[in-house]
Design a binder for these strands. Structure first.
Lengths: 147, 147
DNA sequence: TCCTTTTTGGTTGTACGCAATTTAATTGTA
DNA sequence: TACAATTAAATTGCGTACAACCAAAAAGGA
């Protein structure tokens, strides 16, 4: 026990969270290869499967990604013909992002992914619930203090 | 309740983990600016504060980072005079990584960081313990199945 | 209406993060 | 001792991530 104990890796909470996130995404990669999606593209498609049409601002707010990440990512999804990108007529500042038929069809192919990931993570239902709420609690605390 | 429920953002466990990791690192950034370190550089220094001297392989195993990430990162730490990089005499394949006086001195400046981050995350001791063990459980499960 | 402010996306620059490949050094073995 | 196999770093290429900055469009007052 010394004054530097708080600066050891084993006493960090953030380090295992960071590890966990990275390792999970690494495990997603081979599953998502079949869909020709990266993890970030996958959660973007997930948002669009629910909303069909949206814009950069709303996607940014939902996924906590900024335009520097989204603009090139959406262009890639457009190149794969999973979405369309068009300036809004009502407000030319907005970019309408709409899922295509091909993008919508992808949802069926993706159905096996959550189940496969669940097997990898391998927690009990109780543990999943606990973890889920703790994660959102932290995210909430972090954004709260940014006033 | 429909067949696509497992593909909604709110039913993902991985998404809040991913968010949490990103948001935490974003909060670290201003704190680490004083030390002229990024988050990944910070955990690398943390490892070296404990071990004084190591090599790329051992750092890679401890931090779950590969040489493609570590090689340029260690060169940057060397440029800041926080570490030295020298080929091992015993085995020329290994690169010895050793902390410098300046790098060691940085530890005192870093002492306030864990406390500041703790305030941002703002969980009870009990919650921290639960979360910590769940995180390592997942990381363990994920690496277990890679046989 | 003119003009300031705000909002929305895009661009640029820096730093990961990892898969795949390469090179050099060492080890194991016939 | 040759030589194949293994190991450790480095390199390359692609895809995030985000801060900082920019430009165009819209909103809101005086």
């Amino acid at each position: 026990m010394n004054k530097y104990d708080s600066l050891t890796l084993k006493n960090q909470l953030c380090f295992p969270i960071y590890l966990c996130s990275k390792e999970i995404i690494r495990r997603y990669t081979p599953l998502l290869d079949d869909l020709d999606l990266t993890y970030t593209q996958y959660i973007t498609m997930m948002y669009l499967w629910e909303h069909n049409t949206s814009n950069v601002k709303d996607i940014s707010d939902a996924l906590f990604l900024d335009s520097g990440t989204l603009t090139p990512l959406l262009k890639k999804l457009e190149a794969k013909d999973y979405i369309t990108r068009t300036r809004s007529l009502k407000d030319e500042r907005n970019l309408d992002v709409t899922i295509t038929k091909k993008g919508l069809a992808l949802r069926d192919k993706a159905l096996s992914v959550p189940c496969e990931m669940g097997k990898c993570i391998n927690l009990s239902e109780e543990e999943v619930k606990t973890l889920y709420s703790l994660m959102y609690k932290i995210v909430g605390n972090l954004s709260k203090e940014e006033e």
